[in-house]
Design a binder for these strands. Structure first.
Ligand SMILES: [Mn+2]
Ligand SMILES: [Mn+2]
Ligand SMILES: [Zn+2]
Ligand SMILES: [Zn+2]
Lengths: 159, 159
DNA sequence: AACCTAATTAGCAAGTCGTGCGAATAAGAA
DNA sequence: TTCTTATTCGCACGACTTGCTAATTAGGTT
């Protein structure tokens, strides 16, 4: 995703209006590597601009996606995540806490799909599933104390 | 996923009851490579067993997943898809019609993630995105006639 | 600076997908 | 056949996202 300033120019050149809501979201998303959901962005935005609506957050994210400024990430589970990182990269998901981290992957060009001669392939996505070091620690702890695993956020899993 | 007969044995040995609803779903899922949604399975099931409930379809799919007999697939878009294929395989999605096809991928072992030393990786999933030959044809046609693209089912896309 | 108008916002209704709940039903043991 | 308990089914509800529209506002015009 471009910088807020560049986006401002892009918006103007397309006849779109530069509202304070949009500018705030530009700032919140620019360089953001947290892969936030619409709701979490809404929470951050609300802190700086009480009254902004969740609807506007969704609208702005959708228009940025249409403009090619960000991508949607659907790795199962609940809400769609938004990614302003347009570099060629992939993702790692912690199945415990649900966090998504960027990862560069070497070897994707060597991937050879077998049995889909009738498809024209445009993109390849790689998703690693694992457990982050933080969750690994709390796992060890709960093993010792035999605590129940927190029913909090859990990333549903696909292969 | 095991055969309906094998599943019957597995169910009995676990103290689960063998209902006609479950047996029907065993048959509908066994060897099914369509990656159906709960709704589409429900439609098929309803044809053979009018009155079966969508709730029961969800329940049975969830328990089969818990038993490790099938996996969930979430590739963005709408509903979760269910996959009885437990072999090591990956998927291709047609971004036009949304169909998901199995694909074996050579080279996954050579994939080298960079920058996630703090993760313990358990699984790797590869998703190819493209256009199937059928959709490719209808695309060519609509290009010539300048028709609008069908607003039908469209697979949302993630990377 | 006041004005115009189309774009945008905010809020609520509605749609989709999936789960919690509980009364009615039925599998399978006794 | 009877009994116990798992299961089914229907409905309400929750999470997430979009449709709709009246009110507001950005930004160009006078
Ligand atoms: Mn990313
Ligand atoms: Mn499959
Ligand atoms: Zn974690
Ligand atoms: Zn297709």
């Amino acid at each position: 995703m471009q910088t807020p300033t560049e986006l401002a120019a892009a918006y103007r050149s397309q006849g779109r209006k530069l509202t304070p809501q949009r500018q705030l979201l530009f700032h919140l998303m620019h360089g953001n590597d947290k892969h936030p959901t619409a709701e979490s962005l809404f929470a951050e935005a609300s802190a700086q601009m009480p009254g902004i609506s969740l609807r506007t957050v969704y609208q702005t994210l959708n228009e940025l996606a249409e403009m090619g400024e960000l991508q949607f990430i659907d790795i199962g589970g609940g809400a769609t995540r938004f990614d302003p990182n347009l570099d060629d990269h992939h993702h790692v998901v912690c199945v415990d806490c649900g966090q998504i981290r960027d990862v560069h992957v070497n070897g994707t060009a060597a991937l050879k799909p077998v049995g889909i001669e009738d498809f024209t392939i445009n993109e390849v996505g790689v998703v690693f599933q694992g457990v982050c070091s933080t969750c690994e620690k709390s796992r060890a702890k709960s093993n010792k104390t035999a605590h129940a695993k927190s029913p909090a956020q859990q990333a549903k899993v696909s292969k």
